[in-house]
Every structure is written in C-alpha cells, then in structure tokens.
Design a protein around this nucleic acid. Structure first.
Length: 137
DNA sequence: CGTTTGACTACGC
DNA sequence: CGCGTAGCCAAAC
C-alpha cells in the first residue's frame, strides 16, 4: 500500500480522479446489512475525513433507491426528522419491514440492531485507512 | 466564482 | 431530558 490515500480505488480505477465524497458515502452505506442500522457519525468515521453532517447532506441529495438510506439514523438511535414530507415515516416503515424494532420512545437499540462496520477484507480492498491499523505495527 | 441549501453532533444549561 | 448554539462543508446553480 502506498502512503497516500487512493480515493479513486473505490471505483476500482486507481487512475481515475477522486470519487466525489457523496459517492464514497453511498458506497459505504451499501455495506450495511439488511436489518441493521448505522449512525451518520459512524459512516463519517468509516469514510475517514468527512463529518456526520456531511453524511446527512449526502442522503438529503439522494434521489435514487440503490442506497439503503433507511439504515442510517442519528446518534440517539432515532430516525432524524427532515424538512420535507413523509420521509421520516417512510424510513420507519422500511426499517420495520426489515425487522428493526423501535422502543416505546421511538428509539432503536444499537446493542441489537447496530452495524459493527465493514469487515476487514472490504476495508483492505478499498484502502479506507488513512493511517496503518493499530494491529499492523 | 459567489450563494444557497441541507437526513448531524457535542456541549452547556 | 429538552432546548439553544456553535462547528461542520460538498454540490448544484
């Protein structure tokens, strides 16, 4: 591995210009398994240099359905409210259809439904570490 | 190239 | 626990 990040590697084309941040965010979200959830901050942390808020922006800009956007929730374990109509309730519905359960206060238990993160092979193949992982030293 | 537009979070009270 | 606030920044136009 080279010292610098190869952002284009996410597209499988090392010489390509860096993929837009939103595209990398979508790519990570596609790894969340059915029936599991991740937080905006968690996705940002995996991406490596963007912020939780940017993940929210990326999802707000999403128009296609090839990204399991419903599996991204806020750090309180709740589905985030948004300006537009029905998006929030649609998200709750989609999650319930996947078997995700909400408690009385509308929260999801991360201990039960939280995503652990991408597996090591996926991370390695996508060069997601900006620094060597601690176990490689 | 300036403006607008948003699905967050940490923190203090 | 609820509320306000300060950082957060890429895209589309």
């Amino acid at each position: 591995m080279s010292g610098s990040r190869r952002l284009g590697a996410l597209n499988g084309v090392e010489t390509a210009p860096p993929a837009p941040v939103y595209a990398r965010i979508y790519h990570i979200i596609r790894q969340i398994p059915l029936g599991r959830v991740a937080t905006y901050g968690q996705i940002a942390s995996i991406e490596g240099h963007c912020t939780a808020r940017m993940v929210g922006y990326a999802l707000a800009a999403l128009d296609e359905d090839d990204v399991p956007w419903q599996r991204v929730i806020n750090g309180q374990g709740r589905v985030s409210e948004r300006s537009g109509d029905g998006g929030t309730s649609r998200q709750r519905l989609k999650l319930m259809e996947e078997g995700v359960r909400f408690d009385r206060k509308g929260r999801i238990d991360f201990e039960v439904f939280g995503w652990e993160g991408p597996d090591f092979v996926w991370i390695r193949d996508h060069d997601m570490f900006s620094e060597p992982p601690p176990w490689s030293r």
